[in-house]
């Protein structure tokens, strides 16, 4: 306790000194994917000066083809990253001591699509079929789903396009409701031409995007992280109310990063991501990882990879915000 106090005092002094020098404490945040509306809240918070107002300076970086966000975290290039809950647990299982400091998304957006003319009507019909999956990870839940239904599929790793699916090279594709699902629509396939399977409809409503740091960072930079999460939530609230403005912000960032973008798709993505964050839902506490969601994700990791894997909710979820105590 004394130690904790000393550290806390030290941080306060550090912040005070930095501010006196005209420099704010700096955080580097890495999104877990390329720039797109999925991260609109962060861009908005930075654009609107919410981070500065909260007394911190934030750099937003994105993974590249060669380095992913987890690696940024492990090497210290990023202080805080966004990640799927289940991916983060897998990272933890593999040995990197990450903690969840805020759960932003509260629902799952993972789904499967198959063209109707493929004759695939049910999950059972996936058996023996080639199913596209992201090469970059985020595949724990789809794999767990197939296990649950005892369906053997041939996974076909994909980088980032939906072209192989459009051309009929694979029968089924794992997609995000807010992203690839709409990309397929915007490539000219009508929704009526697809059979769709939402993970949530099969008992896999596991929330996705959350914020993660190394355990020591969560302690050492507690104040900055709290400021970061708080300002980020403000950023999302701003995005929800100023969609057109934020969309243009997103598109500009994408263009700067030479990533193809258009308003129709980013608008869809922003809408759907906001639905998952669900800020207006009075039953949800923004930033909170619910114990049930934690348990469901934990069970998937356990059964999928390691039945001996142990992880305590309180050890994994270290909220940066002071959340009201409930389940």
């Amino acid at each position: 306790m004394n130690m904790y106090k000393t550290t806390f005092s030290f941080i306060l002094i550090f912040i005070a000194v930095m501010q006196a020098l005209g420099q704010k404490p700096k955080l580097v945040f890495s999104a877990h994917w390329m720039p797109q509306a999925q991260f609109a809240g962060y861009y908005a918070a930075k654009d609107q000066g919410y981070y500065e107002e909260a007394g911190i300076e934030v750099d937003i970086i994105h993974p590249s083809a060669s380095v992913n966000a987890v690696e940024f975290l492990a090497t210290g290039e990023a202080d805080v990253i966004s990640l799927f809950l289940i991916t983060a647990m897998q990272v933890k299982h593999k040995g990197l001591d990450v903690v969840n400091i805020a759960q932003l998304s509260q629902h799952s957006a993972i789904m499967f699509v198959a063209k109707k003319d493929s004759g695939i009507e049910t999950i059972e019909d996936f058996d023996g079929k080639q199913v596209g999956i992201w090469l970059s990870g985020f595949d724990e839940l789809p794999r767990a789903m197939m296990d649950k239904f005892a369906v053997e599929v041939e996974w076909v790793p994909l980088l980032s396009t939906v072209n192989l699916f459009l051309l009929g090279g694979i029968d089924v594709m794992t997609v995000m409701y807010y992203n690839e699902f709409n990309q397929i629509y915007l490539s000219g396939i009508d929704r009526e031409e697809l059979n769709i399977f939402f993970a949530t409809d099969y008992g896999f409503n596991i929330p996705e995007d959350g914020l993660y740091t190394l355990r020591e960072t969560a302690v050492n930079k507690k104040e900055e992280l709290r400021a970061f999460v708080d300002a980020t939530l403000r950023g999302w609230a701003f995005a929800a109310k100023n969609k057109d403005y934020v969309l243009q912000l997103v598109i500009d960032i994408m263009r700067d990063n030479r990533i193809p973008s258009n308003k129709a798709h980013q608008s869809w993505m922003l809408d759907k991501v906001l639905e998952m964050i669900d800020l207006d839902n009075k039953n949800l506490i923004p930033g909170k990882l619910h114990r049930d969601d934690f348990m469901q994700a934990f069970e998937i990791i356990r059964y999928q990879y390691d039945l001996d894997f142990q992880l305590e909710y309180n050890e994994f979820f270290k909220p940066a915000l002071n959340l009201p105590q409930s389940n």
Partner: peptide, 14 residues
């Protein structure tokens, strides 16, 4: 600036 960014389908939506 629209090259490779917009498609006939995204424009249809917009």
């Amino acid at each position: 600036t629209q090259i490779m960014n917009t498609s006939i389908f995204s424009t249809s939506e917009e």
